[in-house]
Amino acid sequence: MEKISITKIQALMLGITSITVTGHLLFIPVIIVHAGRDSWISLLLATIPAMLIGFTVALLSQRYQGYSMVEYSQIILGKWFGKLVVFIFLFYFFHEATISIRGLGEFYTSAVTPRTPIMVFLIAMLVLAGYAVRCGLEVIARTNQVILVTLIPIGILASALTHKDKDYRNFLPILEDSFGPVWDGTLPIISLYSSIFVLSMIFPFVNDTKQLKRYSIITMIILIMMFVGPVTGVVAIYGAERAQGLYFPTFLTLRDIEIGALQRLDILGILLWSLGSFSKVTLFLYAIVLAIAQLF
């Protein structure tokens, strides 16, 4: 018998990949539709709730060492009420997994390969994710480490290469319609960052939970920074009015990079989102499976 153990950095890296990918693919257009040129303010406003959720998840896992969300909800709320709450969480995990996988499928069918039935992507992704979950958490965590290390340079490269098309004067005037739209834009970001709660299912396997709170708060700050580039980039390139109403603005900015012979970098975007979605779906599938196993 051997206990699974991953490091806390591995666990948090899982969180980073899963949030960034769906965020860049599906949430950035939503944020921009709401907040327009003030999206970056929304992003900054979301910092505090994001840190709060990171803190909460870490604190709960520290307090109930070795217990997952399913178990400690039942300890805190009593057996039946706890089970009800767990059921809500479970439904959410399920929903999130479905949405992110469907989102990737839709991305493929509308932007990359329109003639391929969407089923191909969904099933391929799920078979892979299922296989990864069967291999265990350690495998997932390590795979994700490799993936994240490839994704971050792509992100930095993308924002550096689009720099010449950006006009930062597009952010003026600041707060033209006061705070209303900014709040509307903050909510999607908060909801996006809240999904780090899924880590409560894998924190029990972290071998060393010392300083977990600090680490998870730092993670949330890193996440915020990873969103500044794409959100501001899209507005700076397209202007607030055109940025609203693009389905995949981040993909479009990548696709339209043209620096001499260096063009058509859309493959990088596809790589980024496919790998990241794989990590995310795997994480959520793992959480669902584990939660169901522990619940009944």
Binding site: E2, K3, I4, L290, A293
Partner: peptide, 12 residues
Amino acid sequence: TKIGNGKIEHII
């Protein structure tokens, strides 16, 4: 990976 009661256990 064997999912038993409560925990995931890895059995080699």
